[in-house]
């Protein structure tokens, strides 16, 4: 039973990571790619760590918990750093109808990707 649970969690983690990587290719600009790249990665890695924890071994569970907790804190910081850098250097949004409420900065959407 635990082996099945571990397999399911492993598959879920791999699926989430694959979707995250595909999103980087599919989504049009740095801002939207961030949604896919970093955050899907967080849940994907969390699922893989949960699969490792199914063994019930205390040392693995403790370290898995610690890794997930640290990822939960560091992943948003990394995403924010990339997003702020893109915003400050005027990286444009590449969806034609993108919303921009920051008229003071030139991140207006462009027509051509």
């Amino acid at each position: 039973m635990t082996a099945v649970a571990a397999d399911v969690l492993t598959l879920l983690g791999l699926l989430l990571l694959t979707v995250g990587v595909y999103g980087v290719v599919r989504l049009p600009d740095a801002y939207t790619q961030l949604h896919s790249a970093s955050k899907a990665g967080f849940l994907g890695v969390a699922a893989l760590l949960a699969a490792a924890s199914v063994s019930g071994e205390g040392a693995i569970i403790a370290r898995a918990f610690l890794i997930v907790a640290l990822l939960a804190v560091t992943t948003p910081v990394a995403s924010h750093a990339v997003a702020r850098a893109a915003y400050r250097r005027g990286e444009r949004m590449r969806t034609p109808n993108a919303v921009n409420e920051t008229k003071d900065r030139d991140v207006q959407p462009t027509r051509s990707p």
């Binding site: 801002y31 967080f42 992943t75 924010h80 702020r84 915003y87």
Partner: peptide, 10 residues
Amino acid sequence: TLSPGSVFVE
């Protein structure tokens, strides 16, 4: 930012 779909920019 942790939740996919929204990123804190500035």
